[in-house]
Design a protein around this nucleic acid. Structure first.
Length: 732
DNA sequence: ACGAAGATAGTTTTT
DNA sequence: CTATCTTCGT
């Protein structure tokens, strides 16, 4: 590319402004479908070609591996050069890289291992047992999230103030003990990667100076999702002097519950001097009906940074709203519509069904199966999170580090080799009392004969197995090591003998692990300091497995309808989108309805959902739904009422179209349900009296004349549908 | 040491 | 309802 201005070809004015701004802090408020990634990639290209930034002076940070991969690929394609070893990666992979390189300064063992949230939870559970902490009062998950939460806030145990509260004090103590366990085992969790690398830079001025010098420009994607720690990390690294380009959308901040701080993007302009803000508001994805509806919805939120999506394209079809009698009817409508679309020539992969919570997928799946529509669920368990894979990884980790208690416990009796809970308990007690690792305790116990008989034999056999695996695999290639380990440890055989298809699948997964290792050795992008022989490759592979647990996607080939939660839909787009279960209590979820802040996050989630649709959007809800085993009357979501009716059309059975959903709209523009001359005239939200059920409020209505039905919420009696022609309702 | 029966809880999940 | 965990029995 000779002429740098070619980078700006085919860009709209806002995009150009963002891409070609001179170096300096910049905030790009990138609306959904506004070409965000393109701007990011072209911005980098511009910095290099117009500003002379070296690829090695670049630091580009994302949240997901997928995003990092995409950015790297697109950048390579645009620049026509390889960007291996260039600092493009997730927060965690970059922190990891820093820690591997400077493990001594970070006060970490050279071969520290990364544990994922699952390992972390196991560790916490173990801790609670060991210290006889009541796990009713301190549920492992809560303890885990407390620990992660502290780390995300950048707090070490001694920095957490319990305010004399016994409960908090206990939590802090658990955090401290957890940290000790990790230190002893050379284990680093996700939060620790970031916190430790922050401390590494903070406490080593020379190192910090080196990196500040090195990075000429820092770019951050999805800035609205950064947590306190990540924000502090960026601030430290940039030193407020290295220019930063951050890209994000406050309206798409949906991970507050995971520690993301929407304030980070809101205050960026004030905290970083001379920040130039560019808004990308032109949308290239959706019809204007969809965009206008989404704009209207999100305008109900407060403290927005302000942004309105628009398109040069057509208004398109209205948004269809379907009210099912129950969840089955809702599913039936969706699947029928899906099939009609397929008949019209739409590919199944172009259609997605989104829902708030995973439990909702069940009814949808059943209906899809019954009607023979291929589908794929996006999400669920990932490759490196599978039990059999984690077992194999645990063996591998023991090869590198015998003191990894978590891994040792995981596989000491998998496959079963006669080491029961009794024996493990003895080892644990000993390890705790003498403050050594389980592996050490195990050998001590064998030496002083406190383990005897069958237990001793079994434990010795295990110890010898690990040593033998280590010896036998010395000098082998990575995939050979893994192959040898899963065979010799008996893992393959263990799963082969499992009954059902499950065992078969597990064996296949283990074999897949060997294949993955082979691929990893070939395509490795990050070279650790002393890469080359098997051990270093194994270490890199294990880290990779923890940091990049594998994709959710599978079979690109089969043409499947996509099912996923609204959260996992972020960043994706589909020509046809269904959002199911748009009901109060479900979406917004009842757990998030009380606090205004959380309700706004639900609304942003809805905004994300709406803006996934390119051409056609369906919103469905059910009046009656099975929830937790019992039938519940559901009211349409408030979000439906927040969409302007001019963009909506209510769909009745078999595609018949009736009036807009004004039926559920309280307020000044009430539609009345006129039952006819001799029937009472009623409106929604109105109080009525019934001879049997007493007093209630009208929630919903449908139909006309004699057959019109209204849903009334009676005090003490619950919600009921009543036919106006029969029920004796008196307006109050 | 494994399996069956009972108890329990039940949003969302980038790393 | 149903997935998951715990406890108890063999």
């Amino acid at each position: 590319m000779d002429d740098v201005t070619a980078i700006l070809d085919h860009m709209n004015p806002a995009q150009r402004e963002a891409v070609s701004a001179p170096q300096g802090n910049m905030l790009v408020l990138a609306g959904a479908g506004s070409g965000k990634t393109r701007v990011l990639v072209h911005r980098i290209a511009w910095l290099m070609q117009a500003e002379g930034l070296s690829p090695y002076a670049l630091l580009a940070v994302t949240f997901t591996n997928k995003a990092a991969r995409e950015m790297r690929t697109r950048l390579e394609a645009l620049l026509g050069i390889s960007l291996r070893n260039v600092w493009v990666g997730t927060f965690h992979s970059i922190a990891h890289r820093l820690l591997r390189t400077h493990w001594q300064d970070a006060r970490l063992p050279q071969h520290f291992q990364i544990i994922d949230s699952d390992d972390q939870l196991r560790l916490v559970k173990r801790l609670l047992k060991d210290h006889r902490v009541d796990d009713e009062r301190f549920p492992p998950r809560q303890v885990q999230s407390f620990i992660s939460g502290c780390k995300e806030e950048g707090l070490r145990p001694h920095q957490v103030d319990a305010h004399g509260d016994a409960y908090m004090a206990q939590m802090v103590e658990l955090y401290e003990r957890y940290q000790l366990t990790c230190e002893r085992g050379g284990l680093v969790d996700f939060g620790e990667l970031l916190l430790r690398s922050l401390e590494l830079l903070r406490d080593n001025p020379a190192l910090l100076a080196h990196y500040r010098e090195r990075f000429g420009h820092v770019l951050v994607d999805e800035f609205q999702d950064t947590n306190t720690l990540q924000y502090a990390w960026l601030k430290l690294l940039s030193g407020m002097s290295t220019p930063m380009t951050v890209v994000g959308d406050d309206d798409q901040s949906i991970y507050g519950w995971r520690g993301a701080r929407i304030e980070n993007i809101r205050r960026f302009e004030q905290e970083f001097p001379g920040t130039k803000t560019v808004r990308l508001e032109q949308n290239y994805r959706s019809t204007s009906a969809i965009l206008d509806a989404a704009n209207a919805l999100i305008s109900h939120n407060s403290e927005r940074m302000g942004k309105e999506l628009w398109t040069a394209g057509d208004r398109g079809e209205p948004i269809s709203v379907y009210a099912g009698f129950n969840d089955l009817d809702e599913a039936r409508f969706i699947v029928d519509t899906l099939r009609e679309k397929v008949d019209e020539g739409v590919n199944r992969r172009e259609m997605a069904i989104l829902y708030r919570s995973n439990a909702q997928s069940r009814v949808l799946e059943e209906t899809l199966i019954r009607q023979g529509v291929p589908y794929r669920i996006y999400g669920g368990q990932r490759f490196y999170e599978r039990l059999e894979i984690k077992n194999a990884l645990a063996y591998l980790r023991l090869l590198l580090n015998r003191d990894d208690d978590a891994s040792l416990e995981r596989v000491i009796n998998v496959p079963a080799r006669g080491i029961g809970t009794r024996t493990v308990e003895v080892l644990r007690t000993r390890a705790r009392q003498t403050e050594v690792s389980l592996w050490q305790a195990l050998h001590d116990a064998l030496l002083d004969a406190s383990l005897k008989g069958r237990a001793a034999t079994a434990v010795r056999a295990f110890s010898e197995l690990i040593e033998r695996l280590d010896n036998d695999t010395a000098g082998l290639a990575l995939h050979e090591i893994i192959d040898h380990v899963i065979t010799t440890s008996g893992l393959i055989e263990h799963h082969r003998s499992e009954k059902g298809e499950k065992g078969q699948a597990r064996v296949e997964n283990l074999e897949e692990l060997v294949t993955a290792a082979k691929a990893f050795t070939q395509g490795e992008s990050f070279e650790p300091p002393e890469a080359g022989e098997g051990g270093a490759a194994l270490e890199a592979f294990l880290s990779e497995a923890a940091l990049n647990a594998g994709d959710h996607e599978a079979d690109e080939f089969e043409d499947c309808v996509q099912l996923m939660t609204l959260h996992s839909a972020k960043g994706l787009e589909f020509p046809v989108v269904f959002i199911a279960g748009v009901e109060e209590g479900l979406f917004p979820h009842k757990m998030s309805m009380e606090e205004p802040g959380r309700l706004e996050e639900e609304r942003r989630l809805c905004y994300v959902g709406l803006t996934r649709a390119m051409r056609k959007l369906y919103l469905t809800h059910a009046e009656l739904r099975r929830l937790h085993g019992k039938e519940t009357f559901q009211r349409p979501s408030r979000f439906l009422r927040e969409l302007p009716e001019e963009y909506l059309e209510e769909v009745r059975l078999r595609g018949q179209i009736s009036r807009p959903v004004t039926a559920s709209r309280p307020g000044p523009r009430q539609e009345s349900v006129d039952g006819g001359a001799d029937l009472p005239s009623l409106s929604l939200g109105q109080r009525v009296s019934h001879p049997v059920f007493g007093e209630g409020v009208i929630l919903n209505a449908e139909g006309e004349g004699e057959r019109a039905r209204v849903q009334v919420s009676f005090e003490g009696e619950g919600d009921k549908w009543l036919v106006l022609g029969f029920a004796k309702l008196t307006p109050l």
